[in-house]
């Protein structure tokens, strides 16, 4: 048997990889040029020394955590009920959860501001905490396509209906079934959705900026307009955070509960 010629496969791979890697390497290299004539991490030191970096990053992490919690509370029971009781609603769910990818964030945030401004019935924007709640809700919407699909895929890998019926016969309440029989079996899928959500929240600019919240995204843009090397360092830091989140998804996939459809 002759080995297939893999030249073209490798060529396509190298071109594709170069398309992503070259700009990244160039950005990284540029971020090291702050000190004239030598490569140094001065730009990174400058970023880490900036109290605004800590404030905005801390704020975005906090909003990210709340977004993930709210997203799980909304999406997991919704997907569970649709799969179990209302399977005919699935195409509608697919459509609705795709809308955040179609509707620009700008349109979304203007809609929020019109609906929830200080003179509306629910004046979220009249206080900082209210605006934070609105921002969290906006991020849950923004991350919905990812969180919904992650959870839906997780539930597809286990026989939700039969597991639920088995638990029901043993007197388990719906809450017990979700908490003990469903949730632990889709935890990896949920965490995948959670890390994608986190990556979105950390880099998001439009909504945070228009709601005037001290998030990491607007900080990144602000730095980019009046500094030379720090934005490159921040871009690399943001990449590392995002890749870290993706790496965690890969790592956690190994711990997914395994199903066992054996016939022996």
């Amino acid at each position: 048997m002759t080995r297939p010629n893999r030249f073209w496969a490798w060529l396509v791979f190298i071109v594709g990889a170069a398309y992503f890697i070259v700009p990244l390497v160039a950005t990284f290299e540029f971020s090291l040029r702050m000190r004239r004539g030598v490569h140094s991490f001065d730009a990174y030191a400058s970023v880490f020394a900036d109290p605004r970096f800590h404030e905005t990053f801390g704020y975005s992490v906090m909003i990210g955590v709340f977004t993930i919690i709210l997203g799980i509370v909304v999406v997991v029971p919704a997907v569970y009920y649709v799969r179990l009781r209302l399977p005919w609603l699935k195409p509608f769910m697919e459509f609705v959860t795709l809308l955040p990818l179609i509707i620009p964030a700008l349109v979304l945030v203007y809609g929020y501001i019109r609906l929830y401004n200080s003179s509306s019935l629910i004046p979220f924007t009249s206080s900082a905490i209210g605006t934070d709640i609105l921002l969290t809700c906006a991020y849950v919407t923004l991350a919905l396509p990812y969180m919904y699909r992650a959870v839906d895929t997780g539930m597809r890998t286990i026989d939700i209906r039969t597991l639920t019926q088995a638990a029901q016969l043993m007197d388990a309440s719906t809450l017990t079934i979700i908490a003990r029989a469903v949730f632990p079996n889709i935890i990896v899928a949920i965490l995948s959705g959670a890390f994608l959500t986190f990556a979105i929240v950390i880099g998001e600019f439009t909504i945070a900026s228009l709601l005037n919240r001290p998030a990491f995204g607007p900080y990144l843009v602000g730095i980019g307009t009046n500094r030379a090397y720090e934005p490159a360092a921040l871009a690399i830091i943001a990449f590392i955070i995002t890749w870290g989140a993706m790496g965690m998804i890969q790592l956690l996939a190994r711990f997914a509960p395994r199903t066992a459809a054996r016939t022996d």
Binding site: L169, A260, A261
Partner: peptide
Amino acid sequence: NPSQRQIGMVFQAYALFPNMNVAQNIAFG
């Protein structure tokens, strides 16, 4: 409701909880 009937059932697809070991599965009810 099924939970009020005190009936045990074995399904074609086993339906063991994948996140629980054998003892925890048996102890579930």
